[in-house]
């Protein structure tokens, strides 16, 4: 039996400061090519989960098998090699505001370059062409040499996507990629993610706040509550009762169209 692409096994995270149990023995697995959406209330541990997968946050306990290696136990150096196969985009975009768009995109290649080349800023001409091509793909070719702080929120997130594309990732982590954007822009960003998922076969794990977006784009949904798994299944099986269980009795569903 082929093993799943990503297996999370008993993942626990306790933040030292304040002894917060953000994740409590979380276990699930993800097949290659899935579009997994993580939902849950604010503070339920979505960001912590995503950041444990590429070890931006050190898990306290548990195993994270990515394609057969336990990421949670890798040395810092090996971890860097694994990280470059994992793209990531963020709610606050996390771009370097003072640099140009294309330069931000190029940083996606840093994991593949020898240290001295990256310190001197010597990106290969092939990388530069790829960067422009990726900007073309997200419709920002004409903004290539504009400074990032001149761009709108939606444009910035597209720069984030182009940066992730530079890594030629096998898997993409998206931490609330559209929470800072309006509904129409949200859909356009989600469609880029869907395209990566369908065309390039990138496994996507995205945390989202709106159930309607989760239903529309996810092939599978998991829900967290207080760091534990409370739902795991295809989008259409989330009914009203499940919804109340995840978000609490008083919650009302809000549509994003």
């Amino acid at each position: 039996m082929p093993t799943p692409y990503l297996v999370i096994d008993g993942l626990t995270k306790v933040y030292e400061r304040g002894q917060v149990h953000a994740l409590r023995g979380l276990s699930f697995s993800v097949e290659k090519g899935e579009f997994l959406v993580v939902i849950g209330l604010s503070g339920s541990g979505k960001s912590t989960l995503l950041r444990c997968i590429n070890r931006l946050i050190e898990p306290t306990e548990g195993k994270i098998w990515l394609d057969g290696t336990d990421v949670a136990r890798l040395s810092a150096k090996r971890m860097r090699r694994v990280r470059r196969r994992i793209g990531m985009i963020f709610q606050q975009f996390n771009l370097v505001d003072r640099a140009t768009t294309v330069r931000n995109v190029l940083t996606g290649r840093l994991g593949y370059m020898p240290g001295w080349r990256s310190l001197l800023g010597l990106f290969s001409s092939q990388d530069k062409q790829t960067a422009l091509a990726n900007l073309e793909r997200v419709g920002l070719r004409d903004k290539a040499y504009a400074r990032v702080d001149e761009l709108s929120g939606g444009q910035r997130q597209r720069v984030g996507i182009a940066r992730a594309l530079m890594q030629k990732p096998e898997i993409l982590l998206a931490d609330e990629p559209v929470s800072a954007l309006d509904p129409a822009t949200s859909h356009s960003i989600m469609q880029y993610l869907e395209q990566m998922n369908r065309q390039d076969g990138v496994t996507v794990i995205a945390s989202l706040h709106f159930l309607s977006l989760a239903r529309r784009y996810g092939t599978r949904i998991i829900a967290l509550k207080d760091g534990q798994l409370v739902f795991d299944g295809p989008p259409k099986t989330i009914d009203n009762a499940k919804f109340k269980e995840i978000y609490g009795e008083d919650a009302e569903e809000v549509e994003v169209r």
Binding site: N54, L56, R80, R81, V82, R83, R84, R85, I86, G87, M88, F90, Q92, F93, N94, L95, V96, R98, A99, T107, G108, R109, L110, G111, Y112, G115, S118, L119, G121, G160, R163, M166, Q167, L173
Partner: peptide, 28 residues
């Protein structure tokens, strides 16, 4: 901290993080 997180996530080494995520924020 955002850019530091993002550059680290690309698999860049510590010095590259310094060069690409921290230095641009502090030069001026």
């Amino acid at each position: 901290q955002g850019p530091i997180e993002a550059i680290t996530a690309t698999g860049a080494g510590r010095l590259s993080v310094l060069r690409y995520a921290i230095v641009p924020q502090i030069v001026n």
